[in-house]
């Protein structure tokens, strides 16, 4: 039983769907961040699999840069979240309605 590229891409799609469902149903901002991490990891699997089956290292390079972006996103996002929590005591999306248009 051979594991082909399609297997990995389907797995990546399933994980991406899980992440998207998390993004759409979460209201707590911290758990929303968790869902975005799942999205980034799903694409990383797809990149690594394509890199292996095509025989090209570019996919792994892109996965590295995605990991770097995820790390910096967490640093900035958590900093903003801590400031917001200190100000309001809540990190729910529904409470963030300070702008009235």
């Amino acid at each position: 039983m051979e594991i082909t590229l399609t297997h990995y891409l389907v797995l990546s799609a399933v994980l991406f769907a899980i992440g998207l469902i998390g993004v759409m149903r979460r209201k707590n901002l911290l758990l929303l961040f968790f869902a975005t991490e799942i999205l980034l990891n799903a694409t990383n699997i797809a990149f690594a699999a394509i890199s292996h089956y095509i025989g090209d290292l570019s996919g792994q390079m892109f996965a590295f840069f995605i990991i770097a972006i995820a790390a910096s996103e967490v640093a900035v996002g958590l900093g903003l979240l801590i400031v917001w929590y200190k100000r309001t005591g809540k990190i729910d999306l529904d409470q963030m309605t300070s702008m009235r248009g």
Partner: peptide
């Protein structure tokens, strides 16, 4: 450079006025 910027942003945002509780 992006990671450096993110590190500085994290320190500035989370570390500002740690001795006072803004809540």
């Amino acid at each position: 450079v992006m990671l450096l910027v993110a590190m500085i942003a994290g320190i500035v945002l989370a570390g500002k006025k740690m001795d006072k509780s803004l809540t």
